[in-house]
Design a protein around this nucleic acid. Sequence first.
RNA 1: GCGGGUGUGGUCUAGCGGUAGGACCUGAGCCUUCCAAGCUCAUAGCCCGGGUUCGAAUCCCGGCACCCGCACCA
Length: 578
Amino acid sequence: MSDTYKDLMDISKRRGFIWPSFEIHGSASGFYDYGPLGKKLLDNIKEKWKNYYIQKEGFEEVKSTTIMSKPVFEASGHLSGFEDALTQCKECNNSFRADHLIEEHIEVEPDSLSNKKIEQKIENHNVRCPECGGTLGEVYSFNLMFKTNIGPGKGRAAYLRPETAQGIFVNFNYLYKYNRKSLPFGVVQTGRAYRNEISPRKGVIRMREFQQMEAEVFVEPNEKNHPNFSKVEKEELRLFPIKNQKEDKGYINISTKKAVEKNIIGSEILAYYLAFSKRILKDIGLNIQKIRFRQHLPEERAHYASDCWDIEGETDRFGWIELAGISDRGDYDLKKHAEKSGESLTAFKEFEEPKKLEKWVIEPNMDVLGPKHKQKADIIAEKLKEQDPQKIKKELENNSFILELDEETVEINSEEVNIQKTTKTIKGENIFPHIIEPSFGIDRILYLLMEHSYKKDKLGEGQRSYFNFKPEISPIDLAVFPLMKEEELKLEAEKIYEELNKEYEVVYDENGSIGKRYRRQDEIGTPYCITIDYETLEDDSVTIRQLTSGKQKRVEYKELKSTINDLFSNKKNFKDLK
RNA sequence: GCGGGUGUGGUCUAGCGGUAGGACCUGAGCCUUCCAAGCUCAUAGCCCGGGUUCGAAUCCCGGCACCCGCACCA
């Protein structure tokens, strides 16, 4: 087994990428802090992602609360969906999902049963431990959401959000109006989410407090195309559809366009975001050879999803891990929030042609009915409206007809009721938009980026390790060194440091041999080091050293900044410098 | 949550009942004109809490964390 994970955790702790949280008081598993370098790396990844979704796709960004009151999660389905009824075997101590154990003995949804009822079922049907046949213990609930209260005393029950998405859904009406009542539109949110996992492991890959970057695209239910699909249609995707997983068939490499045509991916828009996400991950610096798109099996699909593809990345130690999920949530979320809150969360969709609706309506004539029937008039009017207009019209042609009330009958004549034909023009209808959700785990992307970027090689006399981060992703952009610890060189170096530090993330280091200082920067992936040597004092030139090759170029001081700008914006290649 | 393993400076490790030693790293200095050089000095450690013992890093119990397997991962 490779020790990349161990190496990375070592570097992370030593150099300030990732630390266990509140370690001095005894850390808790599933919690990690980011040190200065980790924080910068995180920000750079986020910025890149936002650049795609906000600048390129034109999405809006919002920031909603991390604590939300209980009804939000009753509506979203997380309260029941996240709540597991567990039971432990008294003999072998293994834990099981109690509701799964009694599934075959019941007719109703196990979710709807209380723990006591499940316990009774277990007893009545003599359900034993599937492992050892032992007696099962008490049934208890475990909810993956962190619970809290708003306000003093018992307060209002609330939960820490298990995903950022709900904060967007509950704001649908505001967002819809913000977008001037038109579909489609997209909204993003980045931020923390919380899940009280039973037993998190694997470092930042599975945390109890983690960070997400989510986009929610609100579309018309029947329009799951994307206007820019042609821009990604040739993009090759490495797909792992349900069929291939079940039949153990391996991947399909296929263009986005063909995948839609062959109906492997359910809709153009889903396919668009798969390809779009691939570009982002590639641009962040992940090794695209170690990325695949795996379709969720029906049994693992979330309660809200109708189709879902995970973007997975390959790790040395943990195999394939989920980096992002792109799912078609249908109208599940808006519908549920609307039902629970009683608010309408719909969009108005105009018909292409307004519909003319012709209708016969019964209009009770209260002027006559009122004085004649007094307090019974209302009941009669209600009853009249329920009648078939055509039938009544016919009967009235014979002057009157008999209306049956609950306990009596009344004779109604043509003066007491009007039967009319009305025409109504309907311009459109209220619909629940469907939601396409590309959802990314930042922490996992960060870990995978570190792993994919981690390299070891020989340089000069010794071994070194480095991260070949892209310059714009690397936590530190530049390092500035005086070759020797001499006053004249130091003064020059400090001057250059101050100049560059206005625009870039720069470190200054004069400690140790020059070789050692290069290695220090290599280890954290600083793309370029600038060294001030004795030649600088003579002709105002400095050297730029490239991380990956270890090679150096000499540039004039007055061209340094523009050269650096060009290198960072990819206008120039390092090897093309003189 | 269950079973197994591990826990010594920042990192890697020696010590395995007599009161912690090394290497690397880091810092100060000397030396040094471009890739972890050398020398001197310094900082810094037995995961936490109980127990056994004259004495515990070492043995026992409990907790915590990490690793492996199982379960869980909407």
